[in-house]
Amino acid sequence: MSYTFIVIIMGIIMLVMAFTAIYHKNLKVAVIASGIISLFASVIYIFLAAPDVAITEAAIGSALTVVIFFYVLNKIRLTDDTK
């Protein structure tokens, strides 16, 4: 039953992060927030008895996707000073 509380707390954090990812003005913060959603989702997959999915989500969702986003953001920031 203690899993339930952990899932509730992580769910609240994920919802806050989703709000941040969608509404924050700074794109870097938004990208990191979406990475945190993936990271917490991978912990929930462990509780849902899906270790395979958890490894994949942790490696891809929260690492590779964020890095690819940052490469593109860096390229956009280099040429656009208004944002």
Binding site: G61, V72, L73
Partner: peptide
């Protein structure tokens, strides 16, 4: 870029 970030949130939710 915000639209793509929202898409990745949606992707995670479907999983």
């Amino acid at each position: 870029i915000k639209i793509i970030i929202s898409f990745s949130v949606l992707d995670t939710s479907i999983h």
